[in-house]
Design a protein around this nucleic acid. Structure first.
Lengths: 229, 229
DNA sequence: ACCTGAACACCGTTCAAGT
DNA sequence: ACCTGAACACCGTTCAAGT
């Protein structure tokens, strides 16, 4: 009687999936052993049968997101010629970014954990293979990986957009703060009003984080191409 | 009798200074209302007379570090001609980086807080002034600010160096992990061994984060120069 | 004005106990 | 094998009370 699935014993995957859902809907701060257990209709202590502790839970979250990036990126698979390394990497990084936009809590979490899940190494291996195949020296390829920073995973650590989502809210706050300091910040004010004026219609999104991401990415790719050729 | 200073009443500055010291020596996780109060020879609840709460304390920490960056960067003051914008920005960002290296906990904290202290706006105003003076359009200058990301504050969000310090420790761990996955990661292994071979003597620091920082910085500066000229 | 003690509502986690 | 209840050591924070 009943669905049956509700009585099925918990396992690591179901716990992690619930944790991802909880983080997506209520933020990472809501992901607490007790809260998470509650969403699974279970006591907090039951979770310890499937995960050693909170740290393992957070590592599992990172691992899950990285895996999601991995499958999204695998579809790109550089079918092109070696010379197309720029477009291959570009579309891979943009695919990764789409995953991150679905999990706004992930960048901060990934950055804050000490360990690096093995899926990241696999992913970096394919990036590196693309570069080497295109004729990069290992030295320049190494530099390139560092220069890309977190772009392979689809996010940038930017001061003015801590949360990849909520662009307009951040913009509103920023605008209000800026207005108060207008006299002392003439260039900033001029830039904001100039950019708003240019963005006809779409007033709210004067910081188009997607456009900024692509601009920075191309800046890096073009710069590397110049070092390479 | 005695020093007298010990009996002097607490104030916001002394609390924040103690918090910075505690974070520097034991990490941000050790900065707890109770622990912090203990280092000041006082009960936790006393802190609430000088700061509204934990959030205000963390905001104060960010504010302090940003102020430190501000004074470090003010010494650079672009005394050169407008055309020297690259070298001006370069030395400013490197000065900021030195501050961050003294406070390894700061990048993560700055990135995680929602608000942006006003000192950051002042600083960005001077960067913007330098770019505009050199003939940048507001649009390109805006793009540049986003592209720089967190470099004006002296740090990058990089996957392979979450903590700006502890380079060799991270390297050791990474090496151990890499060794286990050697067969599946031929390019990564080849890159690491190639780079270690090139770094004569200084085996541990095969990832020279200072060099990587400067390489990425120059990549961005050169790329912007090409867009500008 | 500045500091304190006890208390409250939350954490993660251990351990012995249930079925 | 899987889940639970009570307990412990920590949090941040409120409030009434001390001087």
């Amino acid at each position: 009687m009943g669905t049956g699935t509700r009585r099925e014993p918990l396992n690591r995957e179901r716990v992690l999936a619930a944790a991802v859902d909880l983080a997506d809907s209520e933020g990472l701060r809501a992901v607490t052993m007790r809260r998470l257990a509650a969403t699974l209709g279970v006591e907090a202590m039951s979770l310890y049968h499937h995960l050693p502790g909170k740290n393992a839970l957070l590592d599992g979250l990172v691992e899950n997101v990285v895996a999601e990036v991995g499958t999204a990126v695998a579809k790109i698979e550089g079918a092109g010629s070696p010379e197309q390394w720029q477009t291959i990497l570009r579309s891979r990084f943009l695919a990764a970014r789409e995953v991150m936009l679905r999990h706004p809590w992930a960048p901060a979490l990934i950055g804050s954990r000490g360990s690096i899940p093995s899926g990241v190494y696999d992913y970096y291996e394919t990036i590196l293979a693309t570069l080497i195949r295109a004729g990069f020296t290992y030295h320049l390829a190494h530099r390139a990986l560092h220069a890309f920073g977190s772009m392979p995973l689809g996010f940038v650590q930017e001061l003015f957009s801590p949360a990849p989502s909520g662009v307009q809210a951040a913009s509103d706050e920023a605008m209000a703060e800026l207005a108060q300091l207008a006299e002392e910040l003439p260039h900033l004010i001029a830039m904001v009003s100039s950019e708003i004026h240019d963005a006809d219609g779409d007033t709210l999104g004067w910081c188009d984080s997607q456009a900024e991401f692509e601009f920075t990415l191309d800046l890096l790719l073009d710069g590397l191409a110049r070092h390479h050729d």
